[in-house]
Design a binder for these strands. Structure first.
Length: 283
DNA sequence: CTTGTACCCTGACCGC
DNA sequence: TGCGGTCAGGGTACAA
């Protein structure tokens, strides 16, 4: 999935145009787009006539807060999910789809003012879940803290990483420890903090916790300013690309000189995913 | 409890 | 041109 900065960019885009809109009808093009499986009819029926009161984000999850009772339509875009909003002048969304290359529409939400909210997802790893406010609150409580929150301290990161033996890179990807970090920003934060991604999470020193906390927040903030990292699949709403890919220092740079010490960046596989790091200055 | 692996799905790309 | 293998920014079920 796009990670925290990408999902927050999508949230801001959608909030600007969707808050206050009313869903008239929903069309799902694939049954497997519901995160819990099951029949689609109750899902689509329950969304008809609902107003989108607010767009929220928690970790990598989007939460459409629906009136009148605060039910939550949760959306996860995972690897290849994208949103777009077609104007009322293009009610089928045909022109917009052609323009931005949406060729795998999985869901369409018709709005009362004639606009159309489109969800496209080539691999269909993403999807939706409709739930009550209480169910969402319980689910959301299972996620770790928001790393960009004002009150997120190095001590909170240290507590999240705990005393485990798993590599710190893997621990950063665990949404229960800290929410919103994915493969790119885990690599980037560890690079900035000069910490070996293979180091057991429970063995970090106090100084390393402080460096990682600082690096994590800095890279997430900068990526958010750049509206995310568009390496291959991620796009913000209506096809807009992010710009932070130009500022990545380690991710995707295998063989290139480390910007700090010149040693070639190396790639290794952890938990089945690529990690990029400098073997010389990440101790 | 923690940790590791397989799997969901499709498309792009590379070497032969 | 075609084919097989590999990889992709995520999350979850399940086994050990």
């Amino acid at each position: 999935m796009p990670e925290l900065p990408e999902v927050e960019t999508i949230r801001r885009d959608l909030a600007a145009v969707l808050e206050g809109a009313t869903i008239v009808s929903v069309r799902l093009h694939h049954d497997d787009i519901l995160l819990d499986g099951g029949p689609t009819a109750p899902f689509t029926a329950a969304l008809a006539g609902r107003r989108i009161d607010a767009l929220e984000r928690r970790g990598k999850n989007l939460a459409f807060r629906l009136g009148p009772d605060g039910d939550v339509l949760q959306a996860q875009v995972r690897m290849t999910g994208r949103f777009a909003v077609a104007p009322a002048a293009d009610p089928s969304g045909k022109r917009l789809r052609a323009k931005i290359g949406f060729s795998h529409i999985a869901a369409e939400f018709e709005l009362a003012d004639g606009r159309l909210l489109l969800y496209d997802d080539v691999r269909r790893l993403g999807g939706f879940r409709l739930q009550s406010a209480a169910e969402w609150a319980a689910r959301e409580a299972g996620l770790g803290p928001e790393p960009l929150a004002d009150d997120y301290r190095a001590a909170d990161l240290a507590a999240g990483l705990g005393r485990g033996r798993a590599p710190v890179k893997n621990a950063l990807l665990d949404q229960r420890r800290v929410a919103g970090i994915g493969n790119i920003y885990a690599s980037e934060a560890l690079f900035r903090a000069r910490i070996d991604p293979r180091r057991p999470a429970g063995e970090l020193s106090g100084d390393q916790h402080r460096r990682l906390h600082r690096a994590l927040r800095a890279v997430l903030r900068e990526a958010l300013e750049g509206e995310g990292t568009s390496l291959r699949d991620y796009r913000a709403v209506n096809g807009r690309s992010g710009r932070f890919q130009e500022r990545l220092r380690a991710y995707g740079r295998e063989g290139e000189p480390c910007p700090r010490c010149g040693t070639p960046i190396e790639r290794l596989v952890q938990a089945g995913r690529s990690t990029f790091f400098c073997p010389a200055c990440q101790a």
